[in-house]
Nucleic acid binder design. Sequence first.
DNA 1: GCCGTTTTCGGCCCGACTGTTTTCAGTCG
Length: 567
Amino acid sequence: MADILEFLGENPYRIRAYRRVANLITELPEDVEKAFFTKKLHRMSGIGESTLLKIEEFLKTGTVKKYEELRKMVPESLLELLDAPGVGPKTLKIAYEKLGIRTKEEFINALKEGKFNKIRGFGPAKAVKILRGIEIWEKSKERIHLVEAYFMAQEVLEYMKKVKHLIEDVSIAGSLRRRKETIGDIDLLISAKKENWLKIHEHFTKFPGSIEVLAKGETKSSIILESGRQVDLRTVEPSSWGAALQYFTGSKQHNIRIRDIAKEKGLKINEYGVFKADTEEKLGGKTEEEVYNLLGMQWIPPEIREDWGEIELALENKIPRLVEYGDIKGDLHMHTTWSDGVNTLEEMVETAYRLGYQYIVIGDHSQSARVANGLTPDRYRQQWKEIERLNKEYNPKGFYILKGAEVDILPDGSLDLPDDFLRQFDFIVASVHSRFEQDNTERIIRAIENPYVNMIGHPTGKQYGYREGYPVDIKKIIEIARETGTALELNTQRMDLSPENIRMCMEEGAYIGIVTDAHSARQLTLMHLGVGLARRGWATPDKVINTFDLDKLKEFVYSKRKKFAKA
DNA sequence: GCCGTTTTCGGCCCGACTGTTTTCAGTCG
């Protein structure tokens, strides 16, 4: 509705209000229906009388009359173009009203044929720019996976190190810093002395992987990578570092609210600092903490800056202490060349040891995972010998290798290995790898009820960018997991669980485990991204089992066995 | 459309870059 209103040239603040509502309800940890009937929606700032009526209408009739009316007022294929860079509502309106354009194709043709040229303020260079924008947009419509974006950003950062003598500080900003599951473009921020800015942008726009320079200025420039991804660079003075980092990290909705609050307090905030609104006197901006504190709130972790209620909590100093990378004592799920990993057991162990962990769980696939070279009980026993040998070497250094497995949950909910064998492992992950079309709720619940299963691998079956999850009642699974003392896996690469799922776990009091599911030594280093995803779901360290030290983790395993295993 | 320890009406975040302009509109983040 906001898109259509924008096209129609409606009051921009009304449009903003619609967008805010959309943002709030998409990220709700529960059903809109439930939030409506428990009156949670009624209490949310940004949702007013008129929105509540529309939601009620939608819940009763399945549609909203105003939306149906609006839809008739603009061709859908034209509206889609709002997402293309360089195309905004004003341009579309000109196309629609003055040139009679009704579809995306007509729009592109009109640009190519120079039909826009006769319109005031619309020269040929603009047409070229928009056409190029549409081309890039078509190529990179899909947002990319966090992990992929992270590696791209690392390449650019590596390249920028060549001019590090010009730079004070550098950071990733934007949705990548917020650890959003998917990334549209990559934002970098650099602080440096003003006389160096131009040189920094010169260097940046010559990045070898760049195929196009979209903009180049003294404070801001943008390039397009071969993949079609855009990278934006901003430069600021060191004294503005915190304000700029806060600003360029977003989200947009979060920042709008932050500036609202600044205004209420007679302050002005921009990327250069916090100022008194009347006298323009600068009050601060060197660090992010300073910026938030000047607004009367505590620092907000980037991962939760989405205007989902974090601002209200920060004003009351009530943001929970979220799990941090430094809390993580080990990785609970990884593969080696024994099954479908590319690095040997020894290589995985050495890499994990260097990461500073206290323990890891080796979790190679079980026998029925044939394509993944799953292990039979005999091969697990052989692997244990190697693990025992390595433990003799590493235990004196304070590092422990736990015998584990990623056991298949068979279609009937039974496990791929018998109980009397499972009990000989230190830690068991159980996962569904087949029959993705059926409802898997009962199947998983049966696996959770097994006393030797400590964690359910990728519980919803979702694999970002590849596969929708299987049908499953995640709420029910979370409940049973909590009752039985079983953790649910947050799989960094698959991004299963979602932030909404994690919030549900936290609200229910269920445990999660953050894992890399590494199939190579390099992937072991992705843990900090997994921690970021957990933080997006407001995960606290007490509910993350791999923040436990080894003794506590063992206690977690044994207390379930004690409670449920037959004598 | 939403909101209020100045306001129930009149405001609503802020700045950079581009192209087409002689002072600014459109778009973007």
